[in-house]
Design a protein around this nucleic acid. Sequence first.
DNA 1: TCAAAAGTGTTCTGATTACACCCATGG
DNA 2: CCATGGGTGTAATCAGAACACTTTTGA
Lengths: 242, 242
Amino acid sequence: MTRTSPDIRVAVSTVIFTLRPAAGGAALSLPLVRRTRDPFEGRWALPGGWLDPDEGLDAAAARTLAETTGLAPNYLEQLYAFGDVDRSPSRVVSIIYWALLRHDLVDQQRAAHAAAGTAPENVQWFDADSLPELAFDHNAIVDYALWRLRNKVGYSRIAHGLLPDEFTLADLREVYESILSRKLDPANFRRQVEATGTLIPTDRFRTGSHRPARLYRYDGAVELAARGPISTPDSTNRNEER
Amino acid sequence: MTRTSPDIRVAVSTVIFTLRPAAGGAALSLPLVRRTRDPFEGRWALPGGWLDPDEGLDAAAARTLAETTGLAPNYLEQLYAFGDVDRSPSRVVSIIYWALLRHDLVDQQRAAHAAAGTAPENVQWFDADSLPELAFDHNAIVDYALWRLRNKVGYSRIAHGLLPDEFTLADLREVYESILSRKLDPANFRRQVEATGTLIPTDRFRTGSHRPARLYRYDGAVELAARGPISTPDSTNRNEER
DNA sequence: TCAAAAGTGTTCTGATTACACCCATGG
DNA sequence: CCATGGGTGTAATCAGAACACTTTTGA
């Protein structure tokens, strides 16, 4: 414990997903930032930045995400710390977070930034299953985040992080189907989510297509994902691998 | 992305468990190191050290664990990055690993170090469920590692990381019972682990008590735990050799 | 021969699956 | 009235839990 580590820098980046409406279901997509600096200039990279000496990791993830993309996530959780020696020309340890954002808020936040004249530069959304070659080891990082998302949707309620306050069971099912890339039986899906007891039926219905579908909302008192003994610092949840 | 992070240091520490034989089952225990320096001097802390600029995170965990305790784990996995501003007087981001070590190797490695005159100083083993007040936020970290271990034993084969090459089903069941702190039905346990197809029966038996029990070994080709698209760098993460 | 652990068989129950069927609305 | 998705019913299947029972050894 005598050595210090002076020439190692700590960065924080975030893989933030939303569910973009698309023909034949929805598509997972994420924002990337085009690099304007030396290593991998011109390549797309995850939004992020350097860790500030006076802020915690969670706060740094939220801050750098806001600074680079203008986005504020509905769900935020640490993913993994990547620190291979050769992952960057200089020595960088990257604490990676992954996050979820409701698509209606993507539009809303974009509109707000446009009105305020603070629209972020060099940001573009990509479909998660057809990414270009990214800077650093960011392709592998996105793969890992996708794996974690698909895993976690099976045993937690994180799907909520992609839905507005009120939604139909078909909406919720579409989130699952998009993430898992397979169809689910509507009848069984209904019974399963009803059995969890975390869905609260409203007396409102969505009309317009055919038979109106009841709108539900989530019980806000229930956590989005089972957490271990790690305390949740702020409103955006923090969680861990299963 | 303009700021650098000069006065943040990166440490790597490891929560390494073994299963100590005890009256009425086995007990999870872990080694701690008594601090001889300023912050929390005299308190027990997790083994660890500073990250070297020219080594990866996994390598740093293995190295600092060996330097402080003389131990080489059977299983090693990153747990979480802790980086709250106030977790240490100076700003330190700690990449925490958790690990498993077979108890017979604990004794073996200790004997080897004693013979070589390199016995580690200031190291002591503690029962995981009765720890003293540790330095920094290390109590919370151990709680988290225990939570992860108990979770993971339910859906992976990490129990193998605590057993020698050949073992009886009763040995394996005792590992599960110790970690989960509850008794398991021997009949159902047998069928469940047999159904996984990862256990290879040998033609040897352990005699001595009552009816001899067949010895099994694990299929070395199968990973100890599914870790998604993250590659396993070196042999410490892999299964034990045959 | 007896105690105790190894190992097998059987039943019960709850969760998951598959799918038939009815309901309500817009066009 | 009919196509379509919303919503209910039900039987088959599967995994896990509980526990009775047989086998094999040391003492």
